[in-house]
Nucleic acid binder design. Structure first.
Length: 268
RNA sequence: CCUGACCUU
């Protein structure tokens, strides 16, 4: 989690040499780190080496690797693994389903995603807040805002509380469709229900406003954010700078770049 | 002791 994968890999080799037996958790932990640092090939090597070292793969091994593959755009390989799991006597769990459905929806494979969702429900798995969020986000990005809204509203009926991330996904969807007034309505619904928005909530709205050319409104939002004690991040500034550039306000954009640097935010 | 969801270009 500190990104020191070389050191971690060295330790694994040392363990093997000294005759300690790494277990499935050792391998899963390392594979996850490797995937997240973009060393998918190294992770794959471990995945196929585990049986030779007499370590049994478990559902987390598959979950980690399927997620890594999806995030690197290797959906075909992820799919193969997903469908192979039953042959290895490993049942996909709710994490496997959410991970794979997220991967499919991010690649626009909505047909297959729907099939997998039905399989999941047929097998009696109960979607959790993350499964719902994956779906809300995917639907929003497909422009199916009303379906997403319906799902969001149904969650409490199934005793699942939307999280801040669920709301953020929906608010972002509304903003991207230009439904900014609705986005602020949802924001206030959130506040009424006692949720605390975060920088991502504000960024989604600021970006939406900037893209609509409502820069003065966006500025107001930024100040609301600051007043409430939230710190803008590099994405906040980027969204703003992009909005200013697209409105031809290059002087202001450059000015904001200065503010950014002076407030200790590293431009990327 | 390990795994899944949200924001800019």
């Amino acid at each position: 989690k500190e990104g020191k994968l070389q050191e971690a890999s060295k330790l694994l080799n040392e363990m093997l040499k000294k005759g300690y037996n790494p277990n499935v958790i050792t391998y899963n932990t390392l594979m996850d780190g490797l995937c997240k640092e973009g060393h998918l090939n190294e992770a794959r090597k471990l995945f196929y080496e585990m049986p030779n070292k007499n370590v049994c793969l478990n559902v987390v091994t598959f979950n980690v690797f399927i997620d890594g593959l999806c995030k690197e755009g290797k959906l075909d390989e992820a799919r193969k693994l997903f469908y192979e799991m039953p042959n290895k006597n490993i049942r996909p769990d709710i994490v496997t389903y959410s991970t794979f459905i997220d991967g499919l929806s991010k690649e626009g494979q909505w047909q297959e995603a729907t099939k997998v969702i039905h399989e999941m429900l047929d097998k009696g798995y109960t979607p959790d807040v993350i499964t719902y969020t994956v779906l809300v986000d995917g639907l929003c990005k497909e422009g199916k805002l009303e379906v997403a809204r319906k799902l969001l509203c149904e969650m409490p009926k199934h005793n699942i509380c939307p999280s801040i991330i669920t709301y953020n996904a929906f608010i972002d969807g509304l903003c991207k469709e230009g439904q900014l007034q609705d986005a602020t309505v949802v924001l206030h619904e959130m506040l009424d229900k006692g949720y605390t928005p975060n920088v991502i909530t504000y960024n989604a709205i600021i970006d939406g406003l900037c893209k609509e050319g409502q820069l003065q409104e966006a500025t107001k939002m930024l100040h609301e954010m600051l007043d409430k004690g939230y710190t803008p991040n590099v994405i906040t500034y980027n969204a703003f700078i992009d909005g200013l550039c697209k409105e031809g306000k290059l002087q202001q954009a450059l000015g904001l770049l200065d503010v950014m640097v002076q407030t200790g935010h590293q431009p990327d």
